[in-house]
Simulated assay, not measured.
Amino acid sequence: MKHHTLGALRSTAGVHTNIQAFTTTREARLLRWAELLEKTPDRRLRTLPETEYQPASVRDRMRCADSPIAVAYEDAVFRAEGLKDDTYGQAKRFFELTDWQLHGFVCSCHSGATVRSGSAAQCLRRAARPNPGLLAMLWDALLLR
């Protein structure tokens, strides 16, 4: 085994130290995800088919390339914070979303085969609000249709 100085390892390994410190609150994660989606608000992202009809074990493993969840997984900060993959179940756990919240912007029943990135970001911003109340939840449900 060959030993190297820390400086030599940094130059060889290409360590990136410019990643900002990230607050790991639920709200901060959701808002960061929304910001990533808003970078290209008209981008069409793929949705997952009929998530509400899948058994929980199948739904948790659902994924597709170029989905809103895949956008989050592409982010190095989220991966460093513990986002393990771009599956429905991992997004639900990592971002602390309910099935209803996640379903609102990743399921095909709301927008068809694709969803605008900006629309998905709006859903995330609504989900980030602490305790929206019953009236706000009903209003959001009407807007998602």
Rank of each mutant, 00 (worst) to 15 (best):
G7E: 10
A8R: 09
A8C: 11
R10D: 06
S11H: 09
A13N: 03
T23K: 15
T24C: 15
L30Y: 00
R32Q: 00
A34Q: 01
A34T: 00
A34V: 00
E35N: 05
L36P: 00
E38V: 00
K39L: 02
K39W: 01
T40L: 08
R44N: 10
R46P: 07
L48H: 08
P49H: 15
P49Q: 09
T51I: 10
E52M: 11
Y53N: 13
S57K: 03
D60K: 07
M62S: 13
I69K: 11
A72E: 05
Y73T: 01
D75N: 00
E81Q: 13
L83D: 06
D85A: 01
D86C: 04
T87N: 03
Y88K: 07
G89F: 01
Q90Y: 10
R93M: 12
L102K: 09
V106W: 09
C109F: 14
C109I: 13
C109G: 09
C109M: 15
G112A: 01
A113C: 07
A113F: 06
A120K: 06
C123H: 14
R126M: 04
A127S: 02
A128K: 03
R129K: 08
N131K: 14
L135P: 05
D140R: 04
L142Y: 11
L143W: 12
L144H: 09
